[in-house]
């Protein structure tokens, strides 16, 4: 099990292989369909986007349960974000061939987390705040501080693909 701390660098990305289990520490940006359509206008350098829309927790907590949504819906919006320095994405399922192949060029990594294990993944979230598009409600952009968030490297920068194994 590898430990990663954000922001991700080219060297950190190069060290990851498809199928590796990782524990992510630091910051995750939560964004899904609506926020991607709106252009996700924020600094993404070295960042990891987590494709998700949380369910609130007890006592009005912003994030109770949070798990990945289907990543391929974000494929049409992904390349411009990689151009802006995005280094990682967390979702569920495969991506378009275009996105898979371009990860090498941008030295970026696609991770998967267990869909439907949202209460478990929510335990790794230590702090959450809305940082953009509050009007999108469950699709607002959040910044999460995470401790040992469990994920699996799905596509690495060397062309490795966990789904092809």
């Amino acid at each position: 099990m590898k430990k990663l701390t954000t922001p991700l660098t080219d060297n950190m990305a190069a060290d990851l292989k498809a199928g590796d289990r990782v524990l992510i520490n630091g910051t995750l940006i939560v964004a899904r369909d609506a926020a991607h359509k709106m252009g996700l206008n924020l600094d993404l350098k070295g960042q990891i986007i987590f494709y998700a829309g949380p369910a609130p927790g007890p006592g009005g907590k912003l994030v109770g349960s949070i798990g990945p949504t289907t990543a391929s819906r974000m494929d049409p919006f992904t390349i411009p974000l990689l151009e802006r320095g995005l280094k990682g994405m967390i979702g569920k399922g495969g991506r378009s061939r275009e996105v898979r192949e371009v990860l090498k060029k941008y030295k970026a990594v696609y991770f998967v987390a267990t869909g439907g294990a949202a209460a478990l993944l929510g335990q790794a979230v230590k702090h959450a705040e809305v940082i953009a598009y509050p009007e999108l409600g469950p699709e607002a952009v959040l910044k999460l501080e995470v401790l040992d968030f469990p994920a699996i490297v799905a596509y690495d920068v060397h062309g490795g693909d966990v789904f092809a194994k």
Binding site: R21, T114, G116, A117, A118, P150, I152
Partner: peptide
Amino acid sequence: EVLREIIKNAEIARKEKLPLCQD
């Protein structure tokens, strides 16, 4: 590993009264 996470998730959801899945 995924099956273990799913089983653990059910325990946490039940104990903490958290949704099993955010959706």
